[in-house]
C-alpha cells in the first residue's frame, strides 16, 4: 500500500483563491466553508488557502488560553493537521467552518490547560504574553479583517455586565469549567451557568444588530 494518488473532485463552486479586496464577515465565512469542503476532498491547495485564512486565529486563540508561545504553536499545528484529517466530517448544517475549526482549536487548548499545571502556576511563570511575530508581515486583507474583528469584539464586550465579562473570561479564555468558576466566585452553579449563557446572548444580539 505504498503510493496512492490524490484525486480532487471539483464542483463549479470553487472559491476564489486570492481575495483582492477586504471581505466582510459573511463572505469570509462563506469562503472558509468552501475551502473546507474542498479540503475534505483532498484538495491540498485549498487546505493551504484555508491555513492562510485561519492559522492566525487558531494560534492566537491557543495562545490566549495556554499563555505559552511554544505550547500554543504545538497546539496550532495539531489543530490544523486535525482540520485536514477530519475535514470530511465537517457538517455545514451544524455550523460554519470558521466555528468548527475554532471549536476544535479551543477544545484542544483547553484540554492542554486542564491537563497541565494549575493556572496560577502558569501565570506566575509566563505572565500574559501576547507578542506578535515580527518575522512575517501580515497579509493586508487578514490584518484588516483582524482589526475589524477586534474592534467589533471590544464593542460587543462593552455591552456585557462586569460579571458576564468575568464569566466569559474564566470559562472561554481561561479554560475553567463552570463548576470551577462557581467555586472560584463562591456563587451557585445555576448562577454560573446563567451568567455564561446571558453573556453569550448579549454578544450575539449586539453583533446581530450591528450586522
Amino acid at each position: 500500500m505504498a503510493e496512492r494518488h490524490l484525486r480532487a473532485v471539483r464542483g463549479g463552486d470553487e472559491p476564489s483563491r486570492t481575495a483582492a479586496r477586504p471581505e466582510d464577515g459573511a463572505s469570509r465565512s462563506a469562503r472558509l466553508d468552501a475551502l473546507l469542503s474542498l479540503t475534505a476532498r483532498g484538495d491540498a491547495r485549498a487546505f493551504e488557502d484555508l491555513y492562510d485564512a485561519v492559522s492566525a486565529s487558531v494560534l492566537g486563540l491557543a495562545l490566549r488560553v495556554v499563555r505559552d508561545r511554544d505550547m500554543a504553536e504545538d497546539i496550532a499545528q495539531e489543530v490544523l493537521v486535525e482540520v485536514w484529517r477530519r475535514a470530511s466530517r465537517f457538517d455545514r448544517s451544524q455550523g460554519t467552518a470558521r466555528s468548527w475549526i475554532l471549536t476544535i482549536a479551543h477544545r484542544r487548548a483547553v484540554d492542554r490547560v486542564r491537563s497541565e499545571q494549575a493556572h496560577s502556576e502558569r501565570l506566575r511563570q509566563h505572565g500574559a504574553q501576547h507578542e506578535v511575530d515580527p518575522d512575517r508581515p501580515d497579509h493586508v486583507v487578514d490584518t484588516m479583517h483582524r482589526e475589524w474583528e477586534s474592534a467589533r469584539v471590544r464593542a460587543g464586550l462593552a455591552h456585557l455586565t462586569e460579571r458576564q465579562r468575568e464569566a466569559i473570561e474564566l470559562t472561554f479564555y481561561q479554560g475553567r469549567t463552570h463548576r470551577e468558576m462557581a467555586q472560584l466566585l463562591g456563587i451557585p452553579l445555576g448562577t454560573a451557568k446563567a451568567r455564561v449563557r446571558d453573556g453569550l446572548i448579549k454578544l450575539r444580539d449586539a453583533w446581530e444588530v450591528e450586522s
Binding site: Y51, A56, L59, T96, T103, R136
Partner: peptide, 25 residues
C-alpha cells in the same frame, strides 16, 4: 453561540511564524 465564540477567537489572532506553515503542510 459558535459564531460568537469564533469572533472572540478571531479577535485574538496572532500571525504564526513562517515555519509553522511548512510544518503543518
Amino acid at each position: 453561540f459558535g459564531e460568537v465564540t469564533a469572533s472572540l477567537a478571531e479577535a485574538e489572532a496572532v500571525a504564526p511564524p513562517v515555519e509553522l506553515r511548512a510544518r503543518v503542510m
